[in-house]
């Protein structure tokens, strides 16, 4: 179609990777977000926290274009995505990977084939044999045992599904990674391994990560900054120390509650 050429992008773009301005989302009369602003800087791991039902998943869905906001603007890599067709945004969608809260694996494909789907969609010309190899090692990179690759999602445990979802999100070596509660349902060893994998990828590939989590250990271990969602807005963004200096009751409760204190690194 005329005018549907993919947006060219600028790899040297240095502004905020994600820029959300004045976002408003609602379901019927129920307003989830109102006048929400958020910037995610290049190369950082941004933790997003908030009580259950405060709209973290909905925020992620509106950034990646699955939920059409009522108002406001969303820019990713400096390009506004609202009102653009799939054909126009393909170059941008190639550059991000998404892990959904429920895993969202394709149930009729094996784990390795799930990982191959985005590769085949975006790089159809890649050598078939090499594509299989990439898929197989991505599966192992996400911490699954090698014999999990030819299994179907219904044959996996809950935590293994999560890892398979991570493998699919990492399939394209994205520059921007959206993770919705990646460590929920993982054993502590697996969760720690996931933390170090994320850190490793962020440092070597310069990855930017939008990480929704309830896992205080993950927040302390790998997040550069944390955004707090409450009252339909992002009420604060900053390092954990900066957040602790604020006297918002919810933030204090969150980081200084019994669990928050346990997860905090011991002061020397």
């Amino acid at each position: 179609m005329i005018g549907e050429t993919p947006l060219a992008y600028d790899p040297q773009f240095e502004g905020p990777i994600i820029c959300v301005k004045g976002l408003r989302n609602s379901f019927g009369d129920f307003v989830v977000h109102e006048d929400l602003d958020l910037d995610v800087r290049k190369g950082e791991i941004l933790g997003v926290v908030g009580g259950s039902g405060t709209g973290k998943s909905v925020l992620m869905r509106s950034i990646i274009g699955l939920q059409k906001p009522d108002e406001g603007d969303v820019k990713v890599f400096g390009e506004s995505l609202l009102g653009r067709s799939d054909a126009e945004t393909v170059e941008i969608r190639k550059r991000w990977g998404v892990l959904f809260q429920g895993g969202a694996l394709f149930s009729t494909l094996t784990v390795a084939e799930n990982v191959m789907v985005p590769i085949r969609e975006f790089y159809p010309k890649m050598d078939r044999e090499f594509r299989r190899e990439v898929a197989k090692y991505k599966v192992c990179l996400s911490g699954l045992p090698p014999d999990a690759a030819p299994k179907y999602p219904s044959e996996l445990s809950g935590g293994m599904k999560k890892r398979a979802g991570i493998a699919r999100a990492l399939a394209l070596d994205p520059e921007l990674l959206f993770l919705d509660e990646p460590t929920a349902g993982l054993d502590p060893i697996g969760a720690a391994a996931f933390d170090s994998l994320t850190r490793e990828l962020q440092q070597t590939l310069g990855l930017t990560v939008f990480l929704i989590t309830h896992d205080l250990d993950t927040l302390h271990a790998i997040c550069d900054r944390v955004a707090v969602l409450a009252d339909r807005k992002v009420i604060a963004v900053g390092t954990i120390d900066e957040l602790l200096a604020m006297d918002h009751p919810w933030i204090q409760e969150y980081f200084n509650g019994p669990r928050g204190r346990m997860a905090a690194p011991k002061q020397g």
């Binding site: 094996t110 084939e113 299989r132 197989k136 090692y137 990179l141 090698p146 030819p150």
Partner: peptide, 12 residues
């Protein structure tokens, strides 16, 4: 990092 994982047997 990639050489530390040993790849899976098969995709199906």
């Amino acid at each position: 990092a990639v050489s530390s994982v040993d790849p899976a047997a098969d995709v199906r």
